[in-house]
Amino acid sequence: MHLVWQEILTHALGFVILVWLLRRFAWQPLLGSLDARRGKIAGDLASVERAKQEIGRLQQEYQTRLAKIEDEARAKIQEAIRDGRQVAVEIQEQARREAQAVLDKTRESIALEIAQARVELRDRIAELAVEATEKLITERLDTAKDRAFILKTLDELERSR
């Protein structure tokens, strides 16, 4: 076993050159590539995290909007129910008013017809009275006949009512 200084120095020189060459062709590009990939992965993860936060925010916003929409829908339904009830009340009121009007009209019509009937009755009574008077004038009457006449007249009156 003997040391040869020329060989030792040659090995040392060779190693120094190898370090320089591998630094140039291996370490710098590969470590750079690893750093770039690490950076990209970190960036992608950060983007995913941001996207998740954005999704969470949108979801919360969506939930809030949904709740608001539900509240609005509930309020509108309540309002519609109130409007419907109001409309129903109005319809009922109008129906009542129309029924009342029909009733009043009918009553007026009945009253008119009654009045007309009365007029007709009075005219008829007057006619009968005239006829009876004519018969009294044209025919001599005794007590029995008077009575019979009067009863007959009353019967006719009764029937004519």
């Binding site: 040391l3 030792i8 040392a12």
Partner: peptide, 10 residues
């Protein structure tokens, strides 16, 4: 040993 000493010197 020359090789290993060369490395060790570095």
């Amino acid at each position: 040993l020359n090789t290993t000493v060369g490395l060790a010197v570095c």
